[in-house]
Design a protein around this nucleic acid. Structure first.
Length: 234
DNA sequence: GCGACAG
DNA sequence: ATCTTGTCGC
């Protein structure tokens, strides 16, 4: 169920590993058969466990099916270094995913997909590791250049580019809010990634599944919650 | 050498 | 990521 997630001993070997895994990334794939997505987010404070939440979301019914929470003690955490986020957060995400009652069809991850200096943001890393389609949804830019001005209207998007190639999209989920940075992680096309995000409800800047994951991770950290939860059906 | 830098 | 009061607006 859960294979090894290698933790490099330094940033040199970490970069090497990223380049190797980036070569396995597949940037094609559509949404056929994608019914349930798992949204992942984490919450942490210095000196405390890092808490991750996985929210299983039903695309057709537009609702949370279940939530799982996992944590990793501070001693076992890779430090946060820009460009190496997956080594810090992915192990806890894998634990949260393993605690779900079923395997999702696609991962929605808070962070970059292939819009990364070495082509392996956390969404791409998780996608390749689990061999699952994945999409990165970041709240700020790490790598790449927006191709032009982003219109103020909700739903607008402009390509996110680097070295004359498109890596993802700068996307406006709501009018007059800061944009999101989308990039496929694995087994998903650029257009399909945008299509998926546009199909998700977005009452706020973040698409609802990710907003729920954010809320659960924060609440779980503050209240010490762990395990699996099944929200009441309306 | 300098600036940038997901969460 | 987290900390943190008030404030503006529906």
């Amino acid at each position: 169920m859960s294979a090894l997630f290698p933790t490099p001993r330094d940033l040199k070997s970490a970069s090497q590993l990223q380049r190797e895994l980036a070569a396995r990334v597949l940037l094609t794939g559509d949404l056929t058969g994608v019914r349930k997505v798992a949204a992942l987010d984490a919450s942490s404070r210095r000196g405390e466990p890092l808490v991750a939440a996985a929210v299983l979301w039903d695309l057709a019914e537009e609702r949370v099916l279940e939530v799982s929470v996992a944590a990793t003690p501070p001693e076992g955490l890779f430090p946060y270094v820009p460009g190496f986020l997956s080594f810090r957060e992915a192990p806890t995400y894998l634990a949260a995913l393993a605690a779900l009652s079923e395997v999702p069809d696609l991962l929605l991850v808070d962070g970059q997909g292939v819009a990364h200096p070495r082509g392996l943001g956390i969404a791409a890393h998780l996608g390749v590791h689990l061999d699952l389609p994945s999409l990165g949804v970041a709240k700020s830019l790490l790598y790449g250049v927006p191709a032009g001005e982003l219109p103020e209207e909700a739903g607008s998007a402009v390509p996110l580019t680097a070295r004359s190639a498109q890596l993802g999209w700068v996307y406006r989920s709501r009018a007059r809010v800061k944009p999101l940075y989308l990039s496929p992680g694995h087994r998903l096309g650029l257009r399909e990634g945008l299509e998926l995000i546009r199909a998700l409800p977005a009452p706020t800047k973040l698409p609802e599944p990710l907003r729920q994951a954010h809320l659960w991770a924060g609440r779980a950290r503050r209240e010490g919650l762990r395990g699996r939860f099944t929200p009441q059906r309306p």
